[in-house]
Amino acid sequence: MTQPTVDPADALAELGRIRLDETSLDEMLRRIAELANRSVPGTRDVSVTLVRGRANWTAAFTGDVACQLDEWQYEQHRGPCLDASASGDSISVPEMAAEQRWPEWAARARAVGVESSLSIGLPIQGSVVGTLNVHGAAANAFDPAAIAIAERFAAYAAVALANAHLYDSAATLAEQMREAMRGRAVIEQAKGIIIGERRCSPEEAFALLSKISQDTNRKVRDVAKALVNQAVRRTRA
């Protein structure tokens, strides 16, 4: 059995120390895969599958073999990682040579040196679920103690991913709101310029911006920004 290079308790502690304001969701996923690979006994490679609706993808992996085995499941719409993500359960394949549920996948796994696997469901947030997929180079690589460690790690990882997903969504929304406010500000500036030049109402100024936007196939915000920049250049000339 492959011996871990990181104590499982230390791996959980490291997960808990990750700061969401300093770590992207992609980086969080990569660290989860690496920590699982280094802390679960018997592990050769690890991948993290994410599922949103009918879309499945491998969000992080420690070796190409793990990614390839995931991709086959996505193409065929069946396999332990997809079943585990749907159920939230742990699915163990102790011996690829004796696997009857997904014999074609098991044969592919054996061909690339994987003789056992463990997929653990990750309920993350809302419509997003996933699995932690752990692959072993030997049959029966994951004894009950190793499975317990992997399941405990997955439970912590699911919480970390849920928090990271929420933080990432909130940060994206905040940036979208800031961008909208910046766009509104430049539109108001452009309206002011038009009002000053044409002695028209705010409604008429916005109507003019909209017409230029339609005629030039540009966003109103971009038209307004160009007008403001032009006014600034005239002032400086």
Rank of each mutant, 00 (worst) to 15 (best):
M1V: 14
Q3L: 15
T5Y: 00
P8Y: 09
A9L: 14
D10N: 12
A11P: 12
L12P: 04
A13W: 10
E14D: 07
L15S: 06
D21P: 01
S24D: 10
L25A: 09
L29N: 07
R31F: 02
V40S: 01
G42D: 06
T43H: 01
D45S: 07
V46D: 12
L50H: 13
G53T: 09
A59M: 03
G63S: 11
G63E: 12
G63L: 08
D64S: 13
V65S: 08
Q68T: 10
L69T: 02
W72S: 01
Q73C: 07
E75G: 07
Q76P: 00
G79C: 06
C81K: 09
A84W: 08
S85L: 05
S87L: 11
D89P: 02
S90I: 05
S92C: 12
S92Q: 12
V93H: 05
A97M: 07
A98F: 01
E99I: 07
Q100Y: 00
P103D: 05
A107S: 10
V114W: 04
E115C: 05
S116F: 02
S119W: 06
S119V: 01
I120Y: 06
G121E: 04
L122Y: 07
I124W: 03
Q125D: 15
G126C: 11
G126M: 13
V128D: 05
V128M: 12
V129H: 10
L132F: 12
L132A: 08
A137C: 00
A145F: 14
A146V: 01
I147P: 02
I149D: 04
I149F: 01
A154T: 10
A155D: 04
V159R: 11
V159A: 03
A160T: 10
A160P: 03
L161I: 14
N163L: 15
N163E: 15
N163W: 04
A164D: 09
H165K: 14
Y167P: 05
D168C: 13
S169D: 15
M177F: 09
E179Y: 03
A180Q: 15
A180T: 15
M181Y: 14
R182I: 13
R184V: 01
E188Q: 13
I193Q: 13
I193E: 14
I195Q: 02
E197A: 05
E197H: 00
R198F: 10
R198L: 13
R199T: 11
C200E: 03
S201G: 01
E204P: 00
A205M: 04
A205T: 03
F206N: 11
A207N: 15
L208A: 13
S213W: 03
R218Q: 12
V220G: 00
R221D: 12
D222G: 09
D222N: 14
K225Q: 15
N229Y: 04
N229D: 15
N229S: 05
